[in-house]
C-alpha cells in the first residue's frame, strides 16, 4: 500500500508539472503540497484499499480505449446515417444485459462504455444486470454478444 501511495504522489506531482509548465521554487512547493493533500484526502476516503493493480492497467486500459474509439466511430456513423435518412429507420427497445464484473469500477466502466457508444444507453445498473435502451436491433445483438464485457480489463 505504501508503494501505491508513493506512486500516486509521484504521478500527481508529474501531472502538476505537466499542466503548469513553470519551475519556480514557489510553484514546485505548492505542487508538492497539493499532491500530498490529495493523497491524504484519498487515503482518508479509503481509496487505496482496492485490489486493482494500477501497473497492469497502464497497458491494458489504453488498448481498451483504442478499441472503444473504433467502436464509437462505427456506431456513431451508423446512427448519424439513420438520423439523416428520410424514413428515420429506428427500432427503439429496452433490453437487459447480464454483467459479471465484481468491482464497482468494472461495472461503472462497462455502463459508461455502453452509454458512450452511440445507439446504446445504460439506464439502470444493479449487481447482475444493466437495463439498456437501444436505438436499433443490431445495437442490441452486438451488446448481447458480450464482446465489450470481455474486452474491459477490469474485474
Amino acid at each position: 500500500m505504501l508503494l501505491r501511495i508513493c506512486s500516486v504522489i509521484l504521478i500527481l506531482f508529474a501531472f502538476w508539472l505537466m499542466l503548469s509548465g513553470q519551475f519556480s521554487i514557489l510553484l514546485l512547493t505548492l505542487g508538492g503540497f497539493s499532491a500530498l493533500l490529495s493523497v491524504a484526502i484519498s487515503a482518508q476516503m479509503r481509496l487505496f484499499h482496492g485490489k486493482t493493480q494500477l501497473a497492469k492497467l497502464v497497458w491494458s486500459l489504453p488498448k481498451y480505449w483504442l478499441w472503444l474509439s473504433v467502436q464509437i466511430a462505427k456506431c456513431g456513423l451508423d446512427v448519424a446515417l439513420r438520423i439523416v435518412h428520410p424514413k428515420l429507420p429506428i427500432e427503439p427497445s429496452f433490453i437487459k444485459i447480464p454483467v459479471s464484473k465484481s468491482s464497482g469500477l468494472g461495472r461503472t466502466t462497462y455502463a459508461n462504455s455502453i452509454t458512450l457508444t452511440p445507439g446504446t444507453l445504460a439506464i439502470k445498473i444493479d449487481e447482475e444486470n444493466i437495463l439498456v435502451h437501444t436505438l436499433t436491433k443490431a445495437a442490441g445483438t452486438d451488446l448481447m454478444s458480450g464482446e465489450m464485457h470481455r474486452k474491459i480489463p477490469l474485474e
Partner: peptide
Amino acid sequence: GLVLVGGIGILRMPDVYTRLHAGGITDTL
C-alpha cells in the same frame, strides 16, 4: 458536420430516450 447531425437528430427523434442517442453523437464523435 456530426455536431450538426446530432442537433438534427435531437429535433427528429420521437422521445427523450432516442434524443439522448442523437445527442451522444455530438458529444462523442
